[in-house]
Design a protein around this nucleic acid. Structure first.
Length: 735
DNA sequence: CAATCCTGATTTTTT
DNA sequence: ATCAGGATTG
């Protein structure tokens, strides 16, 4: 692709270096290439690499761009996410806002603890909804509003406490020297607003700014960007209003739509040639998005030929939907034209991945969930990171309370709360306060502790002390390793033998991450390591070396492309989601989301809907998504269930599958039943521990007569799931 | 006061 | 199905 000459519009964008520039980049229009080439051109003008700042929304996008620029110019240019820019600026300058240097970044779980604390302090009897208030705090911060800038008139009657809650929350976060995700932007915005001299400092540092996915910027981000460029106006923003899908996170499409009002001298370039998708896919997407009102009209075209029509399949249940996807994956894979890593399944909600996973496991289809529960969210990893944070900070309450009773020392919630209060009232850090307690020093707010508890505190503190010493003299990797060993964590893991092995492996993974980071970072401090991990999302862990299909939400698919794309769950109330039902604006965002999903596909696009789905606790009858009707039928080919009879079997699944009737209204294979061959079933009964080739060790919960003879319900410990197996086919070994 | 067991709610999307 | 919060027990 990089050999193909650029089209005139691309050249125009790439050669416009000074002044404001808006690049309206349709899906697949070669945006990344333009952005990187433009940076190369700026550098060729003699601009120093450190004067350029590129901002993206994901670490992945940032990493890719940075790498491409490096390869082309051998220069390192600062390209990072908005949040890591915030972290970088605050690490240098947060003291101006009254925080200590070396702040901790709290994730959602951490933050919820703080919010609950605040709410119970304000009124313990009132059952206030911490999630709701956190959402409001986030909203306020996204719009750069401080607690005392909240207009009470905008509040509902049940939200009148909000300004007080917000204020208390910020105070508490400051007390623990912690910031939340939104603070990384909000506090940076405040800093620029309250300290013009600081703003000037950063204005001087970066004279060329480039913002990717500008349609998804929110109020704070807008303010930060505009402040930074207000002197030189060398600002290039790239985006596509039709791909704005984060308004619920405060993103404002007006930022991109009004760019020409903000910068009347702005040059506007429209990239409308799509190099990615076949005609049928592209035309269908174009027609769908036309249903939205108030768009910036555009004409995205492709010269890649019409390609295959979009395939639409209506399944009976989510299980047969998964079955269909599995078979189609096998079809393309066996045909040999598409590797697994070039196929993706997109769904609207995370919960939908379950049915697909179950099916893929049975069919031995290698898959990866992109953006599911992150490695760094695992309990054991969070525990060790919390220890490291206490080692590093000593005032961080959430990490303190998380670790103080690991392993179990007999210090429960009540004692923790006493310590928190005592430390807070006497103005000590948590660790310093505990030290005074243990040493029997006089305190302004002493608390009573049993001898046993004092001893427990002492052992905790001595471990901390030890680790701090190690931190001073050893490498980061050694510190992490010692933290795992000396805290007694490995012993603690033995309490749950089921998960012990897996958790140990995850901790080993953490040690190697520490080592990797140490080798790659310019300045490998513990603080930097913790910051990097806080900002790292599960999206960034994807391992491209393995050939496997990707499963992800449509949101996570933004910015990616695949040869084959499946969009599943195309049903009313799911996609578009039920929560958008009574808002025209929200529905248009759902449509954009669908547009984003469709335009990820290069060669083949499959759309699936289901007649009956288990959703929100019950089985519901589903109606096909309106989006299916909005796509012109000439681009769609309906696939009917009889497809099963002719299709090849999925890989690794050559065994018996229930036959399919010739009828249209066929009964599809009951996919809950797992078939395999041989067994010595006579000796098996409920309560027996068994081994299955694919699912590992399990316990038979129930044996009963089913449609295919004797059936077993088996609970497998490996993934904590219960499966129904046909006894005479199940390859079970008694243990 | 801590640990364990049990119950009841709970799924939109995430840097 | 999983998890947080509550009640109970030790």
């Amino acid at each position: 692709m990089s050999n193909v000459p650029m089209n005139p519009e691309q050249q125009d964008a790439v050669n416009t270096i000074y002044g404001p520039l808006l690049v309206l980049a349709g899906a697949g229009s070669g945006k990344t290439r333009v952005v990187t080439q433009r940076i190369v051109n700026i550098l060729e003008q003699g601009v120093h690499p450190s004067e350029i700042l590129g901002l993206t929304f994901t670490n992945k996008a940032a990493g890719e761009m940075k790498e491409r620029v490096r390869q082309m110019t051998h220069h390192n240019v600062l390209i990072c996410t908005f949040h890591s820019l915030g972290a970088r600026i605050l690490r240098e300058s947060i003291q101006a806002l009254g925080y200590q240097p070396g702040f901790t970044i709290y994730d959602e779980q951490d933050v919820e603890k703080i919010m609950k604390l605040c709410l119970s302090e304000i009124n313990p009897s009132l059952k206030l909804d911490s999630k709701q208030f956190l959402g409001m705090v986030s909203n306020a911060k996204n719009n750069l509003l401080a607690p005392d800038e909240i207009d009470p008139k905008t509040l509902e009657s049940d939200q009148l406490l909000f300004p007080e809650v917000y204020k208390r929350y910020q105070a508490k976060m400051m007390e623990y020297n912690a910031v939340d995700f939104d603070d990384l932007l909000y506090l940076t915005g405040r800093l620029f607003k309250l300290h013009p001299e600081m703003l000037e400092h950063y204005q001087k540092r970066w004279s060329f700014l480039l913002i990717d996915e500008y349609q998804d910027t929110n109020g704070v981000q807008y303010s930060i960007v505009n402040n930074l460029v207000s002197k030189h106006h060398n600002l290039c923003v790239v985006g596509d209003p039709d791909q704005s899908i984060y308004s619920w996170r405060g993103a404002n499409v007006r930022n991109i739509l009004d760019f020409e009002l903000d910068y009347p001298k702005a040059k506007v370039v429209r990239l409308e040639q799509n190099y990615r998708s076949r005609g049928n896919i592209l035309d269908a997407s174009n027609h769908l998005i036309k249903y939205n009102s108030g768009r910036l009209e555009k004409n995205l075209w492709s010269d890649r030929g019409p390609g295959e029509k979009i395939k639409h399949y209506t399944a009976d249940t989510e299980k047969s939907e998964a079955q269909f996807v599995a078979e189609k994956i096998a079809f393309h894979y066996d045909k040999g034209d598409v590797p697994l890593k070039e196929m993706a399944i997109f769904y609207r909600t995370n919960a939908q991945s379950r049915a697909l996973e179950d099916r893929f496991l049975i069919h031995h289809i290698p898959y990866v969930i992109v953006g599911g529960v992150s490695f760094y969210q695992r309990k054991e990893v969070k525990d060790i990171l919390a220890f490291l944070r206490v080692v590093h900070s000593g005032v961080d309450f959430v990490s303190f309370s998380r670790t103080i009773n690991i392993p179990k020392r007999g210090i429960g919630d009540t004692t923790i709360e006493k310590i928190r209060l005592g430390a807070s009232e006497s103005g000590f850090s948590l660790v310093a306060y505990c030290e005074s307690l243990v040493q029997g020093k006089p305190l302004s707010y002493p608390i009573k502790l049993s001898a046993k508890q004092k001893e427990a505190l002492l052992s905790y503190l001595s471990i901390l002390h030890e680790l701090r010493e190690i931190g001073k003299s050893c490498s980061l990797k050694e510190l992490v390793k010692n933290t795992i060993e000396r805290t007694g964590y490995l012993q603690y893991l033995k309490e749950d033998p089921e998960s012990e092995q897996e958790r140990k492996e995850n901790l080993n993974g953490l040690v190697s991450k520490a080592m990797e980071w140490e080798l790659s970072a310019e300045n490998p401090t513990l603080e930097g390591f913790l910051e990097e991990l806080s900002l790292k999302s599960s999206l960034d862990e994807a391992d491209q070396s393995k050939d496997r299909v990707s499963l992800m939400t449509v949101h996570n698919g933004k910015g990616l492309e695949f040869d084959v794309v499946f969009l599943v769950g195309m049903e009313e109330d799911l996609f578009p989601h039920a929560n958008s039902r009574d808002s025209e604006i929200a529905q248009e965002e759902e449509r954009r989301l669908c547009y984003v999903g469709m335009t990820r596909a290069r060669e083949y696009l499959y759309l699936c809907d289901v007649r009956q789905r288990f959703l929100w606790g019950t089985t519901r009858l589903q109606r096909p998504s309106r989006f299916l009707k909005e796509i012109p039928s000439q681009h769609i080919e309906k696939i009917r269930p009889s497809f099963y009879a002719k299709s090849p079997q999925p890989m690794g699944y050559r065994e018996e599958v229930s036959h399919v009737d010739e009828d249209d209204d066929v009964e599809e294979p009951f996919s809950d039943e797992i078939h395999a061959e041989t067994a010595d079933i006579d000796r098996l009964a409920a309560g027996d521990t068994v081994f299955h080739q694919d699912f590992g060790i399990g316990v038979i919960k129930q044996a009963y007569q089913g449609s295919s003879g004797l059936m077993f319900k088996v609970f497998f410990t490996k993934d904590s799931r219960e499966r129904t197996l046909v006894a005479k086919l199940a390859r079970l070994k008694k243990l």
